[in-house]
Amino acid sequence: MKFSQVSLLTQKILLEAQTRLPAVVERALRAALKREKSKLARLQLKTILDNVALAKKEKLPICQDTGFLEFFVEAEKDFSLIEKGIRDGVAKATREIPLRPNSVDALTRKPLHANEPIIHFISARAKRARLTLFVKGAGSENQTGIFMLPPTSKKIEEAVILFVKNHAAHACPPVFVGVGIGGNAERALCLAKKALLRENERSRNPANAALEKSLLRKINALGIGVMGLGGLTTALGVRVETAATHTACLPVAVTLNCWALRKASAKLK
């Protein structure tokens, strides 16, 4: 593996994620347009679809908030070389696509005039090495919550629905809802992110799939609608990921994503 290859691959998946919406997301938006009867919901969904087509055609970032740039590296070795390649690719893509320079110092709020990527390393066999990018806007990331419920609680669904009710309007709905249950606090948050990155719409785990289905129905009954202006579509999807937890713990994390679920992935060679 070479540094320059990682940098080029990083630039390639950045361009793809920022300018081309995954086909499954576009299909979900079209299905919502078909279902909606409200004039304002329909107008906004049509405008969203026009924007998606324009961004794809002219290779323009779909949204001006080119987001947090979160990378998941699955590799056997060469971690430090890969990190350097990602950083170089992010700097070049920021100038060339271009991306909005979003990073600031957390306390002084001084702009860094750059994008600081967030990079996770996961060990994997060499032939399964992959680089996956998740682009998440601040409006979505701000709508994130974690609840440490009592382990015997029957209120997981209630907690998720209440959170969506209070936060979805600010996350550019129709949203995707990522739910992580189990692990410890930060593991639950990672699971919620992992849920949003999952390829298949429904979990293969029957209990998780049943929860996803029930949550989606109840969330769409809230009537928040496109951009909070009412309608039948508050969420385009709900995805649940679970992991083992402590016998005395029940962490439940929720993170919302705007309609523009932006991600891309490629093999690392």
Binding site: Q44, T47, I48, D50, N51, L54, A55, E58, L60, P61, I62, C63, Q64, D65, G137, G139, C172, M227, L229, C258, W259, A260
Partner: peptide, 13 residues
Amino acid sequence: LAAVGGVGALYAK
């Protein structure tokens, strides 16, 4: 006035 969120490319034109 509510603009449609995420419609950055289109509004920029």
